[in-house]
Design a protein around this nucleic acid. Sequence first.
DNA 1: TATGAATGAGTGTTCATTCAT
DNA 2: CATGAATGAACACTCATTCAT
Lengths: 245, 245, 245, 245
Amino acid sequence: MPSPSRTEPGRAPGAVEGARPPVPAAGVRAPRRRDPARTRQAILDAAEEEFSERGFLGGRVDAIAERTSITKRMIYYYFGDKQGLYLAALEQVYREMRQSERAVHLDDLEPVEALRTFVLSTIDFQEARPSFVRMVSFENTLGAENIAGIESLRELNAGLVDSVDRLLRRGRTAGVFRDGPDAPDALELHQLISSLAFYRVSNRATFREIFDHDMLDPVHGETFRRRAVALVLDHVLVPGAGRRP
Amino acid sequence: MPSPSRTEPGRAPGAVEGARPPVPAAGVRAPRRRDPARTRQAILDAAEEEFSERGFLGGRVDAIAERTSITKRMIYYYFGDKQGLYLAALEQVYREMRQSERAVHLDDLEPVEALRTFVLSTIDFQEARPSFVRMVSFENTLGAENIAGIESLRELNAGLVDSVDRLLRRGRTAGVFRDGPDAPDALELHQLISSLAFYRVSNRATFREIFDHDMLDPVHGETFRRRAVALVLDHVLVPGAGRRP
Amino acid sequence: MPSPSRTEPGRAPGAVEGARPPVPAAGVRAPRRRDPARTRQAILDAAEEEFSERGFLGGRVDAIAERTSITKRMIYYYFGDKQGLYLAALEQVYREMRQSERAVHLDDLEPVEALRTFVLSTIDFQEARPSFVRMVSFENTLGAENIAGIESLRELNAGLVDSVDRLLRRGRTAGVFRDGPDAPDALELHQLISSLAFYRVSNRATFREIFDHDMLDPVHGETFRRRAVALVLDHVLVPGAGRRP
Amino acid sequence: MPSPSRTEPGRAPGAVEGARPPVPAAGVRAPRRRDPARTRQAILDAAEEEFSERGFLGGRVDAIAERTSITKRMIYYYFGDKQGLYLAALEQVYREMRQSERAVHLDDLEPVEALRTFVLSTIDFQEARPSFVRMVSFENTLGAENIAGIESLRELNAGLVDSVDRLLRRGRTAGVFRDGPDAPDALELHQLISSLAFYRVSNRATFREIFDHDMLDPVHGETFRRRAVALVLDHVLVPGAGRRP
DNA sequence: TATGAATGAGTGTTCATTCAT
DNA sequence: CATGAATGAACACTCATTCAT
């Protein structure tokens, strides 16, 4: 299951667990009746798996029902239809990304260190959550029609760009980041870093098949990170400034 | 149609057309009977469209038949099954990429110019052939299982890496490219450039939806190209060498 | 319908019918919604008809759906695939045979009478259930690949041979059945009787076409039975023993 | 191929083979152009294989074309349609049986020996030509509709019954065969012997699967033949007469 | 809340057969 | 005589979705 530690929205965090209705017979494996929030979450996790593996068109509602041993009727009860379920899974995946980005407090770091941290955390997140990458890939192939329906997504990501923007300003003010028309803005910088981090995960399979080289092999991890950081810093820093010895 | 410039094998380029039975009205795209090469190619083009839009799982054989007004039976006659057709479309798309790369004779250019050309031609190709990008994306989401079945793909791409390798060697010999353990090898360089060029096309839809910024908008094209070239050159050149004034 | 006497598992034999929703007009054979056991059985009966008439390869799932006016989807819901349905029909037919054989308690009869009874009941069953004969014939032409998948079939039939074996032993002990290396064993005896009873049904059509003689015509029934019994008794009895006056 | 020794109707038996048109390039495997009779026969043999393995409904014209590497068009050219081809194959199989029966000159043997010979030759033929048995089985499951279309089949088989009839008369006249209302007539005798010989081949697969006993295993061949002969003689001979010591 | 049964429109694939050359 | 290309109807099987309980 993607992430067992996920908070379950339908249930109060401090709820007493002991007081639950008669526990189902031992040996029964899956979320058993009478815990709607858990049922909902189980469906959602299965949907994330299914859709991230096969896409919206390729994903099967039946397969999701089988993964959870929850009846299809429940899926429709909770999510309306296939698209509703897909959207919910997509949103869940994006929400996680946001949380991961919030966890990194760029504003608390001095500019160069903040930039370095931003690059590395982006790489780390994409690497850790390939199902995010796959769902985004699928969304793109279908023209991102579904993603448009997710409210709060824009502001969510606008927040990200804003924080990169603040980072860049601080760096320029401090005289360590280049300025002028040739210097990249926040969005361009995000695009650059995303390209590096995303492609590495999204194109892993074909790259490996064609070049016999697994971009995600831990063996290459350190080198890749170092190069990526160097590349971005070279691109942003004023020549000669602030590099590590 | 995906590639109007494709040579049609069943017909000599300069052949006289006048002697043939009444040519179908111009604009009618479906090939008419008794021209197997044309029939096959029409199916293939429609398949490329369909599969690049909806993926292997989402693509419908019926849709391909309707696009061409060729009976489904003929699709199976020529390509065996859905997977065979998909593979053929995938191969066609890859072959075009190779041809586009061959067209650029890196060996004939001096190293810095060659590198600049390589970056730009990669960007241009991905931009010009979004269906290539989409098919590769789909392949990756499915683990590139299909791509493994295409012979000649590895050597085809090995050729590409070889020519980049020669390029790097020449640059180092000439003293303009960095050397040593920190300098990227041919594969790493290819990965870098592909990331930039591929992501811009593959993630266009979500990027636009989230940031209101179309990475492929011609308005940004020149800037993007300039930045990408600068980025790569900065990464490869010895500091201070060979840059344009 | 193949076997009107079949017990319908989903309904208690003496259950009151009055409380149910308006019963469909008598004579309407298709079961109406919401009686799974009946639905399943209706499919199975139609499958037995279809497959016994046209074989596994020739039988059409669509035809079975039409015979019952149950949607194809339900057939797959209950039986998985065509082969699963075929196997279920085959098993049903074999189970009936077993029941018919169990109904004859050979152990309760004295040897000669038991043997006579065994011959006649075998003839009667094959004659009464031509679809059994046809399905077995089809199975044979396909190498009995399907039959191999039916568990319990062997033990089921092993039971038959065992009871014939007991019969033979009792007869030998009583001194009425021949003994020694030339006397047939239980399996040989079964083969002999089956040959006579089975061929008469399985080859009826060609025999009639070629010789203008219907082996199943009631006119010949009595003679055939008498001859078959005599033939078997002559083969098994010690000369001069136990024949009817 | 079923029977390479088959006479090819379209070609004179004594035709010189050396004078054939330029032999096709070495490596080309199958009957090559410009020998219509051979082409026809190749199709027929493949059809016999296909139909005897899968029946009329299950047999595929494509499969027959592939077996011979002759184009489907030729099949239609020679045989009209699938049914025409099936009939031709059926007729070929029956013709062989007739020839095999003609080869045994019952009239030249004394009655008991003739009867013994008849039983054994019937057993031998069925054993040697399982595709005959399978095609007859298939015909029966379909109600022998096709067989009705084969002219000369009745007289062909009438001849068989006549010769058995002559055999029985001779035996009765000689006082070795039983007479009276309880004695079997020619058709009954044919039915009996066919049952034994046919069932052994037709039901081999299910019998083996169910009882782990291969009725055609050479190990049991001698015993089966002895029993079959004894059974028939016991049924026909006057008690005590003419048996072997 | 939950379920198992049911549906109709598709979805990949194959069939026997025919056409133009 | 012979071929490869073409067809439309059927074929086994699956889809997302809904109903009765």
